[in-house]
Design a protein around this nucleic acid. Structure first.
Lengths: 342, 342
DNA sequence: GTTAGCACTCGAAAGGCGAGAGTGCTAACA
DNA sequence: TGTTAGCACTCTCGCCTTTCGAGTGCTAAC
């Protein structure tokens, strides 16, 4: 069994190691964290902890370094014992909400500033949107034979494209077509719209080239919305951590993060828990075996959930990051509810 | 005077050094580049070239390394003697043009793929747009008391924002307002619009909150358009070059590139020439003193010019990069003309 | 003008050495 | 029985020396 004092020692080792990135000796622990005991006592405890599989010595007679298991124990303790208290800040929210309409912008802006703030790499997953419904469509003239087609969906997603139209159409004509289209298509899902466009019947009365444009745009939107997407920010931050002072490793990290497939899988898994951490090899990505991924999920109204992650070396300040991350996730949920819902 | 043979030797040294990143010895040059001479001959030539200031020895009795002056000579030769032949490719153009309407997207997409392709860092300058004129405005309903305001300018810039409107307005009402606004504002510059909105007279008949939104958006657009902007892509690529295997240096590079002010100044200068290269300290940016910046300018129709740059270590394949870069610039000019003009 | 030959220089890699940090173990103490 | 002091031992790190090889400069011969 692991005694209370052992836990204290373990925590001390973790904290010191996170700070210094150097193996921690018994003397250090005794002096800085548990002055009521002598180094010899701590030494014995550390020896036990090593035997139990929580600490490792890089070589005999150096200090000790926490293990994946140690971090695991520590993180579980943090998460389960309610030491993660998201701070609900409302300042940023107000400042941002005015300028950001689209879900994607909101999420990316937050992620960017999170990565700037904590100097780690941040990834966000934008969940796939099943059965997006069209809210309205509008055409506006931009040049003699060209119009801008804007499509709004119920999830607040706005997409536009330039379409060719016949040159004799006036702005009013375009508006008329817009109304007719909106009437026909609003409330329909993107795939329904594509289906409808297959039927020749509709084509006749409306501009066929516009219809083609609508179909094309619908297909694009659906394609983009039907897969989970991943965005990564601040990947350069990895260079600030001494475990990546070897350029080879830094490059490995960057390419692993660029290659989004694996990360996406991990983050989809992370969506299910509220907040969780994959420590070291637990993340299952070979190039990231010396990294940890802390994931929190956020809500976006219509029953969809995305997730946001901080990625860094195994040696990271879990308590701080878990707190920051879960705050961020809750801010994000709030913003998305306010700006898109209602 | 520099003889023809000296030039050959110099070119050989440059080419070999670019390839291997190791100091080049006389034997290597003789064997691989000029087998008609012996190493001793080359040795004498190299000794002369060193005295003339084109080569440097990292230490006595190592091979020699080309200098800033050597690169300068080489690059001038390349540029002036017409060795840079832009390849006009039309494949990418067709594929991209369908999906990209906004100038910014076009430029950024091209820059991204350029950096992927050549594995260097790429920066693009988006020139400031003076006196943008409004082409048309349009409101479309998105929720009971909200509308999407879309603004088109003559430079093909599209910007949108959500504005609050009173809840009893129908889609037709919004269209009416759009028409009225378009009539009033189209052809005016952004600052004129802001000026007009100061006059109370207009407010009365149109929705005041919409007018506020227009003003706000116009201000934003003008602010964004009135300063040159810089976008950087593939900054991680620097890690592939051995001169940055020291993480300190890599970090210096990244922060210099992130801090866009200096780079922007350099690139504005580069706009004036068609294509040019700043080698080593010539770029005037302290953190980039061991880097070169190759710049080409592109045209965007309305007499505005932007520029695109490749940034990497001084040791770079200038011929290849100059060619690629100037091709890219001409493709870009072409795309912008096609998609925005007319 | 070109080349062969040779002595010389210097950096990079390999081996040796001492200092310092940290451990494990034992014995003494409360 | 748990804690502590003391001591011998181990291993890394930084520093120095040595060796090896690549490449040069110079001279003399072609």
């Amino acid at each position: 069994m692991i005694t209370e004092r052992k836990k204290q020692v373990l925590e001390a080792v973790i904290k010191d190691y996170v700070k210094t990135a150097e193996p921690v000796g018994s003397r250090t622990v005794a002096r800085h964290y548990m002055p009521e005991y002598s180094s010899a006592t701590i030494r014995n405890e550390m020896s036990d902890l090593e035997e139990m599989g929580y600490l490792t010595q890089p070589h005999v007679s150096s200090g000790r370094v926490p293990n994946v298991h140690a971090y695991r124990l520590y993180v579980d303790h943090l998460i389960n014992d309610g030491l993660i208290n998201p701070i609900k800040d409302t300042g940023t929210e107000k400042a941002l909400i005015a300028r950001l309409q689209q879900m994607e912008d909101v999420v990316c802006t937050i992620a960017q500033s999170l990565s700037d703030m904590c100097r780690y790499t941040v990834a966000v997953m934008l969940p796939r949107q099943k059965n997006l419904r069209i809210n309205s469509l509008q055409l506006m003239p931009i040049a003699p034979a060209r119009a801008l087609l804007v499509v709004l969906t119920d999830a607040g997603i706005i997409r536009d494209a330039v379409v060719q139209v016949s040159s004799e159409l006036t702005a009013d004509d375009l508006y008329g077509i817009s109304r007719a289209m909106s009437e026909r298509f609003s409330g329909r899902t993107l795939s329904e719209v594509q289906g409808l466009l297959q039927g020749i019947a509709i084509h006749a009365e409306l501009e066929p080239r516009v219809m083609q444009g609508v179909g094309e745009l619908a297909r694009q939107m659906e394609k983009q919305a039907s897969a989970d997407q991943l965005r990564v920010f601040g990947s350069q931050n990895i260079l600030f951590h001494p475990e990546f002072s070897d350029v080879e490793k830094a490059r490995g990290f960057l390419s692993a993060v660029e290659e989004k497939q694996n990360l996406l899988k991990l983050m989809s898994r992370g969506v299910k828990q509220g907040i969780c951490a994959y420590i070291g090899h637990e993340n299952g990505i070979m190039e990231l075996e010396d990294c940890s991924v802390v994931i929190a999920s956020y809500e976006m109204g219509n029953n969809h959930r995305g997730s946001v992650a901080i990625i860094g070396p195994t040696r990271m300040p879990y308590q701080e990051l878990l707190t920051t991350l879960s705050s961020t996730a809750s801010i994000l949920s709030g913003m998305l509810k306010n700006s898109l819902g209602a």
